[in-house]
Computed example of a mutant assay.
Amino acid sequence: MHYHNYDDLIKNNQEWVEEKLSVDPSYFENLAKGQKPPFLFIGCSDSRMPLTNFTKTEAGELFIHRNVANQVSLTDMNLLSVLEYAVEALKVEHVVVCGHYFCGGVAAAYAGTATGVVGSWVNPIREVYLQNREEIDSLPSEEERVNRLAELNVIAQVGNIYKTSVLQRAFKSAQVPEVHGWVLDIKSGRIKELELPKEQWKELGILS
């Protein structure tokens, strides 16, 4: 893998601007007029998650929030403000929670080795593991166990999206975004859409 040095970043930006303008001279003028993205993307901070690359989207198409191991914490004002703005002001049509295989935060939660602030942050994933320990531990390799935990973590975070006051308000209006759970397989570059337990959530009152 080729790593850039700091000076390359500014140089690359200048080259990218020139490339964009050569194709569309009004590209940046149009960007500056405002945004109307159809998607809110909640993903992991991992450097291997270049979202626009994996989805072949352009600037202005994804409203994005990222944190370690793609957590949806009901006390996280940063995430809640992003979600509220995306749903109520931008009126996004879809909310995507996207985790990934080979996630360091998930692996640390599985092993119980995370400490300090990160340990506190990924503790909900540790809880997901303990709640699903029989299923996860039955898998033959640690890689499979950690990757299954990454999937279950995404499903849990989608459930948390539905629990927010933002989504509960949206259910009472005509504008309710569809919420999806994805896992990106870094080994293949492919996205897997996860099946969500919506009937179970309806029984619990999480979903209307």
Results as ranks from 00 to 15, higher is better:
residue 56 K to I: 09
residue 77 M to L: 12
residue 174 A to L: 12
residue 145 R to F: 07
residue 76 D to A: 08
residue 2 H to V: 08
residue 199 E to K: 14
residue 9 L to T: 12
residue 128 V to G: 00
residue 141 S to H: 05
residue 158 V to K: 05
residue 14 Q to L: 13
residue 68 V to K: 07
residue 38 P to I: 09
residue 63 F to Y: 13
residue 6 Y to M: 07
residue 171 F to D: 04
residue 58 E to N: 11
residue 89 A to I: 15
residue 195 E to M: 11
residue 13 N to R: 03
residue 131 Q to G: 01
residue 59 A to L: 09
residue 181 G to D: 04
residue 45 S to T: 14
residue 40 L to E: 01
residue 135 E to V: 14
residue 164 T to A: 02
residue 59 A to W: 00
residue 13 N to E: 05
residue 18 E to Y: 06
residue 70 N to H: 13
residue 145 R to S: 10
residue 48 R to Q: 00
residue 65 H to A: 01
residue 205 G to C: 05
residue 10 I to Q: 06
residue 197 P to D: 12
residue 55 T to R: 01
residue 144 E to W: 03
residue 121 W to V: 09
residue 164 T to D: 04
residue 7 D to F: 11
residue 119 G to N: 04
residue 149 L to S: 01
residue 178 E to Q: 10
residue 117 V to L: 13
residue 76 D to P: 08
residue 97 V to Y: 04
residue 198 K to N: 04
residue 82 V to E: 06
residue 125 I to L: 04
residue 159 G to A: 11
residue 70 N to M: 02
residue 81 S to D: 07
residue 131 Q to R: 15
residue 205 G to S: 02
residue 147 N to M: 08
residue 13 N to F: 14
residue 201 W to R: 08
residue 25 P to N: 10
residue 200 Q to T: 15
residue 190 R to V: 11
residue 27 Y to E: 05
residue 82 V to L: 06
residue 12 N to Y: 11
residue 117 V to A: 12
residue 179 V to T: 06
residue 140 P to M: 11
residue 87 V to N: 00
residue 59 A to Q: 14
residue 56 K to E: 12
residue 137 D to A: 15
residue 3 Y to M: 08
residue 55 T to L: 09
residue 68 V to C: 04
residue 14 Q to R: 13
residue 198 K to L: 15
residue 16 W to T: 03
residue 157 Q to R: 12
residue 45 S to W: 05
residue 95 V to G: 01
residue 28 F to P: 06
residue 6 Y to E: 09
residue 72 V to F: 02
residue 49 M to V: 08
residue 199 E to N: 15
residue 64 I to L: 11
residue 57 T to M: 12
residue 201 W to F: 00
residue 45 S to K: 08
residue 30 N to H: 12
residue 178 E to N: 09
residue 162 Y to T: 00
residue 28 F to M: 08
residue 199 E to F: 05
residue 100 H to P: 05
residue 77 M to P: 00
residue 117 V to H: 09
residue 145 R to W: 03
residue 3 Y to E: 11
residue 91 K to F: 06
residue 5 N to F: 07
residue 152 L to N: 01
residue 54 F to H: 04
residue 70 N to T: 02
residue 80 L to W: 07
residue 68 V to Q: 02
residue 173 S to F: 09
residue 204 L to S: 14
residue 172 K to M: 06
residue 52 T to L: 03
residue 59 A to V: 12
residue 79 L to M: 15
residue 64 I to R: 02
residue 120 S to H: 09
residue 162 Y to G: 03
residue 77 M to V: 15
residue 28 F to T: 08
residue 67 N to F: 10
residue 186 I to A: 00
residue 90 L to N: 11
residue 96 V to F: 04
residue 137 D to I: 10
residue 1 M to N: 10
residue 48 R to N: 02
residue 110 Y to N: 10
residue 186 I to Q: 02
residue 73 S to F: 05
residue 104 G to N: 12
residue 50 P to N: 06
residue 107 A to R: 14
residue 63 F to P: 00
residue 93 E to T: 11
residue 35 Q to T: 11
residue 58 E to K: 04
residue 117 V to W: 05
residue 84 E to G: 09
residue 11 K to G: 10
residue 108 A to M: 08
residue 44 C to I: 05
residue 151 E to C: 10
residue 92 V to Q: 08
residue 36 K to L: 07
residue 183 V to R: 02
residue 91 K to T: 13
residue 44 C to V: 06
residue 55 T to N: 03
residue 66 R to C: 05
residue 26 S to I: 07
residue 122 V to M: 00
residue 194 L to Q: 13
residue 34 G to D: 06
residue 87 V to L: 00
residue 184 L to D: 00
